[in-house]
Design a binder for these strands. Structure first.
Length: 226
DNA sequence: GCGACAG
DNA sequence: ATCTTGTCGC
């Protein structure tokens, strides 16, 4: 409610931008990211999944709040809104964030850490949806994506919880994590107020018996059942 | 110019 | 993201 003061005042201006302006804004915002750990005691973790309905006309954000440790769901919200922007690779956050903010506004729980379905800084301009959302909420965030957007990596060891660095040139922008033995790895990167190592640690700590970590997995499941 | 391209 | 059945395997 009052944990994300920027929401109410400026919710009407990141969107409605032409691609060129959006890209310029991304560079500015990326410069404001805190790339080190800046999080307090973690009691609640939110999982976020944003998707689309009606052929893209409606944006749907699902948020599940889980206890930590324990990873038991304690609150969940689904928000739907008319979609404002088209899908452009690299500008996904502009399309997804408005609905996510609406969902967070309806949350009663205080959230300490946010895990988003999508990338954090593993993005061409270091502003994937998890990073962008982190700035808006002013909360520590990390992204867990199912597909690569940018960066290069070597083979990922087969064992559960093993990983390989995701590199963009000399910069380590995340890790490619084998969340379960025998499944395609996921792409983990920090968003705001988190280091790459901590993003990896939290992603692993939230693993259950499935491919996706519990927060994102439960948000996914909540979103995909009507 | 030719691919690549989160959700 | 979404369109979609069965099928192999723990």
């Amino acid at each position: 409610m009052t944990q994300h003061p920027r929401t109410r005042e400026t919710a009407l201006h990141d969107w409605d931008l032409a691609p060129k302006e959006a890209i310029a804004l991304q560079r500015t915002l990326a410069g404001r990211l805190i790339r080190e750990d800046a999080l307090g005691e973690v009691k609640h973790i939110a999982g976020v999944d944003i998707g689309f309905e009606d052929g893209g006309d409606t944006t749907r954000a699902a948020v599940v709040v889980l206890s930590w440790p324990g990873l038991a769901p304690i609150e969940q919200v689904v928000a739907r809104q008319p979609t404002r922007m088209p899908y452009v690779p690299g500008l996904l956050s502009f399309r997804e964030i408005p609905a996510a903010l609406a969902a967070f506004e309806r949350l009663d729980s205080r959230v300490d850490l946010v895990m988003v379905d999508g990338h954090g800084i593993a993005h061409p301009r270091r502003l994937g949806v998890a990073a962008h959302l982190g700035l808006w909420l002013d909360l520590p965030t990390l992204g867990v994506a199912k597909k690569r957007l940018t960066g290069r990596h070597g083979e990922v060891p087969e064992g559960r919880a093993e990983s390989t660095d995701l590199m963009d040139g000399d910069e380590r922008i995340g890790v490619v994590l084998r969340s379960r033995a025998g499944v395609k790895p996921v792409f983990v990167s920090p968003g705001h107020r988190l280091s790459v190592d901590s993003a990896r640690t939290w992603a692993v700590a939230c693993l259950g018996r499935y491919k996706l970590p519990e927060p994102t997995r439960l948000a996914d499941r909540l979103a995909s059942r009507r």
